[in-house]
């Protein structure tokens, strides 16, 4: 039974592992749907399986039970309409920025010149114009993550998934990058429509998202699907902001 118009449906997803005779439940009965353009954060204590959930959505890992639907079709293996940004950037150290971004188009069947054009365009979008031939060694952490972002965006995915994308960056750089991601998302002429982000930083979640899914500790279950009804741009020092952060934090205890 698929939901009509559901962009992304996660239905009763559970995941468990059997390791050295022991049975470990990582996720249990996770269900939620996204059916309009929005930013969703997934937060929870460490070890609660948020990264695992992300990888199930993207198609890396199969759920032990339940399924993930993208526009009504079950996700099996990697889906062209989704892209992932990694916590530690996952760039190939021996490829230039441009070549790294081009990897994002590996799946796509278009002539090479078009690929290069698209890569250039998205490199510009993330503010790395001028660095196309640089290698990751020459880049700062923030710049590397921009490459990761560019690579994820270059194939115009409908859903952008991010796994703790800013946790390896310093506070100032992370701030800039968060705003850049929001800008890209808000821009109607660019994909993606939906952003799903895993983070352990609740303030970050409240700053960026429309919804915050709070997971419990292992085995992870959805405790709450919290709606953030603040208008953007959001003011971190406003009392409403604090209230949201407090409310979510209290769900952990």
């Amino acid at each position: 039974m698929s939901r009509v118009g559901g962009l992304l449906d996660v239905i009763d997803v559970s995941k468990s592992y059997a390791a050295s005779g022991k049975h470990i439940d990582v996720l249990r009965d996770i269900s939620f749907s996204i059916d309009k353009p929005e930013v969703v954060s997934i937060v929870g204590p460490s070890g609660c399986g948020k990264s695992t959930l992300l990888r199930i959505i993207v198609g890396f890992l199969p759920p032990t039970k339940g399924k993930v639907l993208h526009h009504g079709e079950e996700v099996k293996g990697v889906d062209l309409g989704m892209s992932l940004v990694f916590q530690n950037f996952a760039l190939f150290p021996w490829l230039s920025v441009q070549d790294n971004v081009l990897i994002g188009l590996e799946h796509v069947q278009i002539p090479h010149e078009q690929k290069v054009e698209k890569a250039h365009h998205v490199i510009q979008e993330v503010g790395l114009e001028g660095f196309e031939e640089a290698t990751p060694k020459e880049l700062s952490g923030g710049m590397k993550q921009r490459v990761g972002l560019a690579r994820a965006l270059v194939r115009d995915p409908e859903i952008l998934l991010m796994d703790e994308p800013f946790s390896s960056l310093d506070a100032l750089t992370a701030e800039t990058l968060r705003n850049d991601v929001l800008r890209v998302w808000a821009d109607k002429s660019l994909a993606p429509n939906v952003v799903v982000m895993v983070t352990h930083n609740i303030e970050e979640a409240v700053y960026m998202s429309d919804r915050v899914l709070v997971l419990s500790s292992r085995p992870g279950r959805v405790i709450e699907d919290y709606q953030v009804r603040l208008t953007r741009p959001r003011d971190r020092r406003s009392p409403e902001f604090y209230k949201c952060v407090d409310e979510i934090t209290s769900l952990f205890t």
Binding site: N88, A90, I103, E106
Partner: peptide
């Protein structure tokens, strides 16, 4: 081989000789 790179390769469809 770092895990993340394998995942990235999987994600973006690097297969076979590539």
């Amino acid at each position: 081989i770092p895990n993340e790179l394998s995942e990235a390769s999987n994600m973006f469809g690097l297969k076979g000789t590539r």
